[in-house]
């Protein structure tokens, strides 16, 4: 396998994902240092609202919303989902208590990863594999030799093309788990 796809696409993607993890740890650390851990408990609310708002892009894409450029809505979708996820991750903290909210957090994390795959990697990777294929063909390699040369890049690309199949169903799972968590909070928590 050539290392270019990893160097040019996968590693930047990993770094962006790491930024989310680093921001989560930093937020959690700051709250602990300021003795304001209780604030994290309430960050789930703006986090959930931001994720909810990010759905506007899906509504626009399916024409339930008529106004606004889809590209602008997509940008809003990415920003609000990333920020909402950050708030939810800080809200989750690094404390393992109930299983249900952790399942919701897990589903959200898979959702974020699949979203980033869609945003960052897919188009560029598709173009990259296509250019590699053309490059090898221009060098006079036979079809089977070309397929062999780009085999691992093509496999990686195939895996990445599955992102949409994951992104939406796992979002449904996340919504249901998050709703169950929110309902349990309303059911048992004393707001004051």
């Amino acid at each position: 396998m050539t290392t270019s796809l990893w160097r040019n696409q996968i590693i930047p993607f990993s770094l962006l994902l790491s930024l989310l993890a680093a921001a989560t740890l930093a937020g959690d650390y700051v709250l602990h240092q300021l003795n304001m851990v209780w604030v994290g408990r309430y960050l789930g609310i703006p986090g959930a609202l931001l994720i909810l708002l990010s759905l506007a892009y899906s509504l626009r894409k399916r024409k339930y919303l008529q106004s606004g450029k889809p590209k602008v809505w997509l940008f809003f979708h990415e920003i609000s989902a990333w920020l909402g996820s950050l708030f939810v991750l800080i809200h989750a903290g690094i404390h393992f208590n109930a299983i249900l909210p952790w399942l919701a957090t897990g589903a959200m994390s898979i959702n974020v990863i699949s979203g980033l795959v869609g945003k960052l990697l897919l188009n560029r990777s598709r173009l990259y594999v296509q250019s590699e294929r053309e490059n090898f063909q221009l060098q006079g390699l036979s079809q089977s030799e070309v397929e062999q040369a780009i085999y691992w890049d093509a496999v990686t690309l195939d895996v990445m093309t599955q992102w949409r199949k994951v992104h939406i169903p796992i979002f449904v799972v996340f919504v249901v788990l998050a709703l169950a968590h929110i309902i349990s909070i309303f059911l048992f928590w004393g707001w004051r």
Binding site: H95, N97, I99, L103, A180
Partner: peptide, 23 residues
């Protein structure tokens, strides 16, 4: 998905101390 969610609902009902209790 529906089957999974029903299983989770049953688990919450049966084991609330593990599924929803904060510690």
């Amino acid at each position: 998905l529906a089957i999974n969610l029903i299983v989770i609902a049953l688990l919450v009902y049966t084991y609330p101390h593990l599924m929803v209790a904060p510690g």
